[in-house]
Design a protein around this nucleic acid. Sequence first.
DNA 1: CAGTTCGGTTGATCGAAGTA
DNA 2: TACTTCGATCAACCGAACTG
Length: 445
Amino acid sequence: MLERGFPEVSPHEFYRDLFPEGSLQSAEHDGKGNLIATQIRPSGKGRTKQWVVDDSLNMLDKVIGDEFGLIPPITFYGKTHTKQNAHELYAVAIDIDYVGKQQLKNLLKQFGNGVQLRPTYLVSSGKGVHAYYFLKEPVQLYHNLEDTLAELKEAFIRRLWNDTSSIRPDSPDITGIYQGFRCVGSQSKLGADFPVKAYKMSDNRYTLEDIKDSIPNCKVDLSVLTEKPKKEKSKLSLGEAKKLYPEWYQERVVEGRPKKKGTWVCNEALYEWWKNKIFTEVKVGGRYFSIMALCAYGLKCGISERRIRQDAYSFLEHLESLTDDEDNHFTREDVKDALKALKADNKLLSTMASREWIEKQTKVVIPPNKRNGRKQEQHLQLARGIRALKEQMGENVVGGGRPDKAKIVEEWRTAHPEGTPKDCIADTGISKNTVYKWWSVGEAL
DNA sequence: CAGTTCGGTTGATCGAAGTA
DNA sequence: TACTTCGATCAACCGAACTG
């Protein structure tokens, strides 16, 4: 289909071209990054695996020929495909889906006559294509560049994915810069007989400016890319203060009444909810972990350690009463041991706090997401708890409802001191209802 | 006509599921 | 793994129907 003089290139050649010899790590600590290849298993058939591909590219064979392998055009430090570990961007890859024969012809024509920027490679991905624009120089993936890069990429996707290139021009997939793509040499959506193939379109390599210039009216500001990232200001938010001085924080929360009424009651509800679960649903095999989970919830909700300990021991009798095997009693020692979680570091605490972990360790079904009846109720309880917690920690957002228009009315009144509500309604277009609502608020000042 | 009450609609957001 | 979509809630909005 693509035989118009564009040579097909083997997976090894493709990735060697993208990551030239010497660009990846070859010695243990040479300061260079590596590729991460991810293999996704169809659900139920084992876990997702990730491989580190170094400068020799030997590990590529792990995903070539496989069902579903992903490789992003990025090098990483470390062993996992995470934003944190991302090091350098080597190419901008654009996914265009629902490309039929005619759309492909259109695309090739536009690449040929300069209407669209001609990619370095075009990769067939099954029902669509991936256009790879290799970069002259890899771009350092500092975290403060993320938004800029994402913006540029989105503009570029919208430019390439249009009614001539796709059967569905209206719903482009806006893939992020960290997104992996089906790797060259693995199977496509259409199965084993249709592997993902790469075709060389040009020897061109680009800069981000080249890409920006190819998009008409593109307003993305690339200047941050040339600046070094600023050091983050060290500010001590309430949330950080909590981590650093947990005892002070908890005394403050428990003994000094919090300013906003409802919030900590709501938080406590989450903790109480779990206590109820321990009574009603925890069985042998999940007893020890249910106490650990109590610690996690307690800390999250700002309950004092003393109270958590008290509550933990209060479950001792009940949990021991569940014992069905003389060799498997639940003792004071077990509770004591589980309570060590209170002193655990943050990392352990956050693993414990995840719904999945608690479910697995305690055998209590914490409803995944089948939205019916009381399961949904619990789902929201959790969401509300977390939201309330954020608010309490001073993160000041603003969740929940629709934003109000108090400010608009207020500003209009300052600009028109003699104005009447009627005029305000006409000027601002806000309904009279809303205007009246905020009118009196302004009056009070 | 100025202002209020009622109830459907809207924008924002959450965690989980889904998709690449 | 990253990011979008989905189902669902919440609080505020806004039109319509009312009140005086």
